[in-house]
Amino acid sequence: MPPETVLKPGWWWFALGAAVFAAATTLLGKVGVGTVNSNVATFIRVVVMLVTTAGLLSFRGEWTGFQGISVRNWLIVIASGVATGLSWLCYFRALQLAPASRVAPLDKLSVALVLICAFVFLGEAFTWQTALGGALIVAGVLLVSLA
């Protein structure tokens, strides 16, 4: 395993937290975009994220963390931000157009895409367990979202 992919303590809890908050995002988002333009809802979400993150940086005294970021890393993080924004715009619009129980699983095809891209571009291990798990995710998505 490349050194940057070594598991560090606490990773599981943060990943589980991400799943719980992602579920809350879907459920709250579905209710919230019922009568609100999905792009406006996404903008509100971004403002809340900005304020929340600024508060966290202030609370933890991490505003100095911007020092030493290379141009390459700035560009990569900015590209990640653009991808996140486009994902959110698509996600909220999809929630306006379809039931959350169909949208959320289809969104999770990202897991299979990450598995493939992590293998191809990041050199992460692609074992039979990873392949089977990815295939089961895809099968589950197809069963739930396209039924």
Rank of each mutant, 00 (worst) to 15 (best):
N39C: 02
V40T: 08
A41V: 04
I44E: 10
I44Q: 10
V46G: 00
V46L: 10
V46N: 03
V47H: 10
M49A: 09
A54L: 14
G55T: 06
L57I: 11
E62R: 14
G65F: 02
F66C: 03
F66T: 15
F66Y: 10
I69Y: 07
I69M: 02
R72G: 02
R72F: 09
N73T: 09
W74T: 09
L75Q: 07
A79V: 14
T84P: 03
G85L: 06
L86V: 15
W88E: 02
W88H: 03
C90T: 00
Y91A: 10
Y91D: 11
Y91H: 11
A94H: 02
Q96G: 08
A98F: 12
P99Y: 11
P99G: 11
A100L: 07
A100F: 07
R102Q: 14
P105W: 10
P105D: 09
P105R: 15
L106E: 02
L106T: 07
D107T: 07
L109C: 11
L109K: 08
S110M: 10
S110I: 11
L113Y: 14
I116Q: 05
V120M: 08
V120G: 01
F121A: 11
F121E: 12
E124N: 04
F126R: 01
F126G: 00
F126N: 05
L132R: 04
G133T: 14
A135E: 03
A135G: 15
A135V: 15
A135L: 15
L136A: 13
V138D: 10
V138Q: 10
A139V: 06
G140F: 15
L142Q: 12
L143Y: 13
